[in-house]
């Protein structure tokens, strides 16, 4: 549905995007992940025809954004980072305006707008002035604007930023629902959001492509080093000695302590037998284990890990030169 190849955007000598390539299949929800300033918004602005690019190609449903901008724009509903709302208009009037602006021809204009309003659940504010709405409602009005004309592709730039937890959950469920029939690109720097909604994740950093996979595969990719946490009651140095005596344990750090109980975190590669031995080692030392758990690698860790290694590599490259 969307094919991006070697997309490059330069501001002067600086690369905002450096040869980014990816494609999005029909009906897929693609998560676009990166820290602030990674180039997410720039990429989205280019796909929607708001910003021009330096090199590469952008193709949406067979149409090139440079050669056939109107055809591409007809197929995309775009919710930018700041929803493009006219604050002096009523919600209904705004959507009515967007309907005309997008040159949509349906049999029943009112019904279409009402359907969109129902989808994003803003029926209770449809006669109110946009300027008087809360951030959450404005975001939804923005999404409604993107949905007008029922475009097959939705591009949502950080759709949940600034919303309260309840609104975030609602927004996610709306997006998931929409994803059943539409192709969606969703950007975020919140990783839990991406893993909750997306089929596939692309990570970019400083305009460069870092990784691309399903959320679960990404976890597996660097899931080899598991972290564990153990709370032990007793002498701190003795406990560290026991932990360090294990082959599979490294990087032991005491993260907190209270009333003679020490909480350690460490990288561990332990099988079942090792875990039993760990238990008895502490038992023999008369130091009861108060709590023990494995810390799963979250997308945050993966993200930090990937962007960190990437920067290291670059650093090495430069020093080699």
């Amino acid at each position: 549905m969307i094919t991006i190849s070697n997309l490059t955007k330069k501001y002067g000598d600086k690369y905002a995007l450096d040869h980014i390539s990816f494609d999005v299949k029909k009906g897929e929800i693609l998560g676009f992940l990166g820290p602030n300033g990674a180039g997410k918004s720039t990429t989205m602005n280019i796909i929607t025809g708001y910003t021009a690019y330096t090199d590469g190609t952008v193709n949406v449903d067979g149409y090139d954004i440079v050669e056939n901008p109107v055809e591409v724009k007809k197929r995309i509903g775009y919710l930018p980072e700041i929803p493009p709302l006219y604050l002096d208009m009523l919600v209904w009037d705004y959507l009515d305006f967007v309907y005309d602006l997008k040159k949509i021809k349906t049999d029943n204009r009112k019904e279409h707008i009402q359907n969109v309003i129902d989808t994003v659940k803003i029926d209770d504010v449809k006669k109110r002035k946009i300027g008087n709405l809360s951030k959450g409602y404005r975001q939804r009005v923005g999404l409604a604007g993107a949905l007008i004309g029922n475009p097959p592709v939705l591009i949502l730039d950080e759709p949940t930023v600034g919303l309260d937890p309840k609104q975030i959950i609602e927004m996610r469920s709306v997006i998931k629902e929409l994803g059943k029939e539409k192709t969606i690109i969703l950007s975020s720097h919140i990783l839990s959001e991406i893993s909750a909604v997306c089929n596939r994740v692309i990570i970019i950093n400083k305009g460069k492509f870092v990784a691309e996979d399903t959320p679960s595969n990404l976890s597996a990719m660097i899931g080899t080093s598991h972290k564990m946490s153990v709370s032990v009651s007793g002498d701190r140095e003795k406990a560290e000695e026991i932990l360090n005596s294990f082959d599979g344990i490294s990087n032991v750090v005491c993260v907190s302590s209270s009333a003679g109980t020490y909480n350690f975190e460490f990288d561990a590669r332990l099988d079942e037998d090792d875990k039993k031995r760990l238990f008895f080692a502490f038992a023999e030392a008369m130091m009861p284990i108060m709590a023990q758990k494995e810390i799963e690698t979250s997308l945050e860790d993966i993200f930090l890990e990937l962007t960190k290694t990437r920067e290291k590599e670059e650093g090495n490259d430069e020093s080699n030169i």
Binding site: N45, T48, G49, Y50, P69, V70, E71, K73, K74, I76, Y78, P80, I82, P84, L85, Y86, V98, L101, K102, K103, G145
Partner: peptide, 10 residues
Amino acid sequence: KTDQLLITSP
């Protein structure tokens, strides 16, 4: 930023 709406419309 409403120009974003105008420019990304057909």
